[in-house]
Design a protein around this nucleic acid. Structure first.
Lengths: 157, 157
DNA sequence: TAGGCTGGTCAACCTGGTTGTCTGCCATTG
DNA sequence: CAATGGCAGACAACCAGGTTGACCAGCCTA
C-alpha cells in the first residue's frame, strides 16, 4: 500500500481547478466583448436574477452587508450591466435590474462554462467527471447558492 | 442517458470544497492557539520556507509585487509569525524568517489538513478520494506552488 | 397617530492589491 | 578605479471590496 498524498494538496488542487476554470471563462468572456466583467460580478448578477432585487436583499442573499452590496451595484451600474429603477409601490426601494448587456454576459458565461466542462469530460471521460462531481457534492454543503462568495474574490484579472 | 449538470456547478463545487477545507483548518487552528492566522498567511509562510527569503523574492514566488509582499510581511511580523533580519553579505537585503510561532502554525496546519483528508476518505472511500485527486491533477497545472494565490484571498474570517 | 422596522446612503476605516518614485547598495564593465 | 546599471526596500497615492456606525425617509401596525 502506497502512502497518501499530503492533506494540503487536496485544497490546493480544488482551488487550482476552480481558478483555472474561472480564468478561462473570463478570458473567453473578454474575447467575446465583455472585458470588464470580474468573477465577482458574475455571481452578483446571478444573485440579482432576471426579476431584479434591491441592494439590501442582494446583501442578504450574498451574505454581505447592504452597504457592500450597494457598492458592488454601483460599479456594476457604472460598467453598464445593471440599472436602478424605483419601485412604484414602495418609495424606499430601488430595484436593481440586469440590463441587456448584463443578461448577455450571463448567457455567454453559461455557454462557456458548459464548453469547459465538455473539455474536462474529454480529458477525464464523462464517467469520471460525473464521479468527481458526485463526490464533491457529497462533501460540500448542499446549498450551492447561498455561499458568501464575495470577499473570496480579491481583485484579480 | 441522462443529461449533464450545468457547467457552472463544477467550479462552484470545487470552490465550495476548497472553502470548506480552509474554513475548517482555520477554525481548528484558532482553537489550537492561532486565532489570527489567515488563509493567506499560511500560503505566504509556506512560500517563505524554513530558509527565509526577502520580500522581493517572496513577491516573485507568489506572483505579486514586492510592495504587496512587503505589506504582508509587515502584518505577519506584527502578529509575530515572522521576523526580519539583515543580511551580513548584502546590506540591501532584509531576510524574512519564520519565528517559532510561525513554524508551529505550519506544523499544526499540516496535521489538520491530513485529518480533514482522512475524514473525506472516510466519507468517500480512500480509492474514490485518490481518484478525485488524480483527476484534479490531470486538469490543473502541474506546478502546485507558483500559483498567484494572493489576491484570491479577500478578507474572510 | 406614534413607534418601530426597513431601505438607501454617507463616512470612516481595514486589508490586500496596484503603479510610480526615490534612495541606497552592489557589481560589472570600460 | 570609477561610473553606470540593476536590484532591494520603503513611501505615497490609488483602487476594489469589505466592515461598522449613523442617519433620513418611507412604510406599517398597535
Amino acid at each position: 500500500m502506497s502512502t497518501n498524498p499530503p492533506g494540503y494538496e487536496l485544497p490546493l488542487r480544488l482551488f487550482l481547478g476552480f481558478r483555472t476554470i474561472i480564468d478561462e471563462v473570463h478570458a473567453e468572456l473578454a474575447r467575446q466583448g465583455h472585458p470588464d466583467v470580474r468573477p465577482l460580478h458574475g455571481f452578483v448578477m446571478q444573485a440579482i436574477g432576471t426579476h431584479g432585487t434591491t441592494a439590501a436583499e442582494l446583501g442578504r442573499r450574498l451574505g454581505v452587508s447592504k452597504q457592500a452590496a450597494g457598492k458592488t451595484v454601483d460599479t456594476l451600474e457604472r460598467v453598464g450591466y445593471v440599472e436602478r429603477g424605483s419601485d412604484p409601490h414602495d418609495a424606499r426601494r430601488k430595484v436593481v435590474r440586469l440590463t441587456e448587456r448584463g443578461v448577455d454576459s450571463l448567457v455567454r458565461s453559461a455557454r462557456i462554462f458548459d464548453d469547459i466542462r465538455a473539455r474536462w469530460a474529454q480529458v477525464l471521460g464523462e464517467d469520471r467527471l460525473r464521479a468527481l462531481e458526485a463526490d464533491l457534492r457529497e462533501v460540500t454543503p448542499a446549498d450551492v447558492f447561498r455561499l458568501d462568495v464575495p470577499g473570496w474574490f480579491g481583485g484579480f484579472d
